[in-house]
């Protein structure tokens, strides 16, 4: 009789504790993106040199799309590496495109000059593009295959050129990544 009651107590209590323990494996701040494998949301962005660029124009190429801001420390941390990686892939069927958001134009230009960045960069006024891509932390990087499909998303600073290289390759072949990548270093503003 007592054992039956005990069984009830443990039957209710243990799952509760288990669920709470499960919480340790999750990062509550993370927002998994539903966009991987879907067509990349189209946009037109005003580049820093004044020209306009539409994502549709880049169809047929692999697009490396990076959201950043000059005030974001992890963006600074990865900036040099991104530029170096761009130098490596330049001339192939790859386009690097940086989207600056929630920033002042002067500060953003200063950032580009400081890190000597040569790949395309544009300003997302009002963060409309960023919202379209479900951006919630900076930096965030999307890889888009030649058919205009998002194959991979990386949140936080990219760890090294190898990841970029590998993911560009996958995008070229249109292969989807099962899960998004996480650099632990990121700023959420």
């Amino acid at each position: 009789m007592n054992w039956k009651r005990l069984a009830i107590v443990f039957g209710l209590g243990v799952p509760l504790i288990a669920v709470l323990a499960y919480g340790f494996t999750r990062d509550p701040r993370e927002i998994p993106s539903p966009l991987i494998g879907r067509p990349a949301p189209p946009f037109t962005v005003q580049l820093f040199d004044g020209k306009e660029l539409s994502l549709a124009d880049l169809r047929g190429k692999v697009v490396f799309l990076n959201f950043w801001a000059s005030w974001c420390p992890p963006c600074r941390a990865e900036a040099r590496m991104l530029e170096a990686s761009w130098k490596d892939h330049q001339g192939q069927d790859v386009v690097f495109l940086g989207i600056n958001m929630q920033d002042r134009e002067a500060a953003a230009r200063e950032f580009l000059r400081e890190f000597g960045i040569t790949y395309l960069n544009g300003i997302d006024a009002g963060s409309r593009i960023a919202i379209g891509y479900g951006v919630w932390g900076l930096p965030e990087t999307f890889f888009i295959d030649p058919d205009g499909r998002i194959t991979y998303k990386h949140i936080g600073g990219l760890d090294g050129p190898e990841v970029i290289h590998a993911k560009l390759d996958e995008a070229r072949q249109g292969r989807l990544s099962g899960r998004e990548g996480k650099g632990d270093y990121r700023s959420v503003q």
Binding site: M1, N2, R5, L6, I8, V9, G13, L16, I17, L20
Partner: peptide, 21 residues
């Protein structure tokens, strides 16, 4: 704290179950 919570919840209610009579 989770361990302590488990101890408090399960221990106390086990006690209640045993003492229910």
């Amino acid at each position: 704290f989770l361990g302590f919570l488990a101890l408090v919840l399960l221990g106390s209610f086990a006690l209640v179950a045993l003492r229910a009579d």
